[in-house]
Design a protein around this nucleic acid. Sequence first.
DNA 1: TTACGTTATAAGAAGATTCTAATATAATCA
DNA 2: TGATTATATTAGAATCTTCTTATAACGTAA
Lengths: 118, 118
Amino acid sequence: MDPDRAYERAELLKAFAHPTRLQILAELGKGTRCVTDMEDILPVTQVNISQHLTVLRNAKLVDFAQDGGTRCYYLSRPKLVEGVLSLITADHPVIRKTKEQIDREKTKGGKERVAVRG
Amino acid sequence: MDPDRAYERAELLKAFAHPTRLQILAELGKGTRCVTDMEDILPVTQVNISQHLTVLRNAKLVDFAQDGGTRCYYLSRPKLVEGVLSLITADHPVIRKTKEQIDREKTKGGKERVAVRG
DNA sequence: TTACGTTATAAGAAGATTCTAATATAATCA
DNA sequence: TGATTATATTAGAATCTTCTTATAACGTAA
């Protein structure tokens, strides 16, 4: 992965990487919500929710449609958001490898993982 | 999503959310690597790589097997790491919704939501 | 217009993260 | 043993992020 792409992907992940923002995204996964809806659910101030929504908007994870005085927020890349939420929610058992296992893997195929031999 | 889980999931995502760490994870996705392997590829110091590996280890995203003086690092939750990398690498078109679309979704009674005003 | 409800922005302190420099530890080699 | 190679830790400054307080902007209703 080249550094420029790594940088922009890290920026995207940073937008996800906050408890309040994760809760906002999970809530928007259930449907459109305005800021007062979120105030009822999250234990943080309106100002703070608004600030987090700004971060999420800048990352293009959410957007809103104006409805009179309120703003209806929704996921603007639902597949991405739901994919990430689903991955981090799932259980992923932690595996362990011994030096011997690693040696065996290496002989089965090189660094580049090009098929060398069966 | 309850706040405690949101907090721990945000911690996990923070481990991903750095350009150098993403590059390390992408590299480990290709196979086991020791620190000097990574030094050859990444434009950062050995000390810094080691620090990032500590973050990744604490998040249980990587682990290592000792091989004499070197440490063979590998992904300890490869499905999780590869899933996240694949999601953020893929193109996810940004969608936009109008107030009217949102209203229509609501009346179709799709997903659950909180009480709607007016 | 004024008042109210809803959401956003600004400024700054507090806290967390990251990088650099120096050093430490551990295994291997001569 | 001392030198060398490989990796980790510590400490601190620089930087970034977050939260708080105060306030601004916008839409609707009276």
